[in-house]
Simulated assay, not measured.
Amino acid sequence: MNIAVLSGKGGTGKTTISTNLALALKANYIDCDVEEPNGFLFLKPDIKETKCVLVEYPFIDDNKCTSCGECAQVCQFNALAKIKDNIMLFEKLCHGCGACEIVCKSGAITYRKREIGKIEKGMRGDINCSRGVLNVSEPMAVPIIKELLNQLEKGINLIDCPPGTSCNVVNVLKYTNAAILVTEPTEFGLHDMKMALELVKVFNIPFGVIINKDDGEGNLIKKYCKEKNINIIGAIPYSKYIAIDYSKGNILYENLNHKYIFDELCARTKEVLQWS
Rank of each mutant, 00 (worst) to 15 (best):
G13N: 08
T16W: 02
T19W: 01
N28V: 01
I30W: 02
V34R: 00
E35Q: 09
F40L: 07
F42E: 05
D46W: 06
K48D: 07
Y57F: 14
P58K: 08
K64E: 03
K64C: 02
C65G: 04
C68Q: 01
C68L: 04
E70H: 01
A72D: 00
V74R: 00
C75Q: 01
F77V: 04
A79W: 05
A81I: 02
K82S: 01
L89Y: 03
L89D: 01
F90C: 03
C94W: 11
H95Y: 14
V103A: 05
V103K: 01
C104Y: 07
Y111T: 09
Y111N: 12
R112E: 14
G117Q: 09
K118R: 14
K118Q: 11
K121N: 09
N128L: 13
V133I: 15
E138L: 14
V142R: 07
P143R: 11
I145H: 09
E147M: 09
E153K: 10
E153A: 08
G155E: 08
I156C: 08
P163L: 09
T165L: 04
N168Q: 14
V169M: 04
V170K: 11
V170D: 03
V170Q: 08
V172M: 08
L173A: 05
K174N: 12
A179T: 10
I180W: 11
E184N: 09
E184C: 12
A196T: 07
A196K: 02
N204P: 02
P206R: 13
I211E: 03
D214G: 08
G216P: 12
N219C: 12
K222V: 04
I230E: 06
N231H: 07
A235C: 10
A235R: 05
I236R: 01
Y238R: 13
K240F: 07
A243K: 05
A243S: 15
A243M: 09
A243E: 09
I244P: 00
Y246P: 04
Y246F: 15
G249W: 12
K259Q: 15
D263Y: 04
A267R: 15
W275S: 11
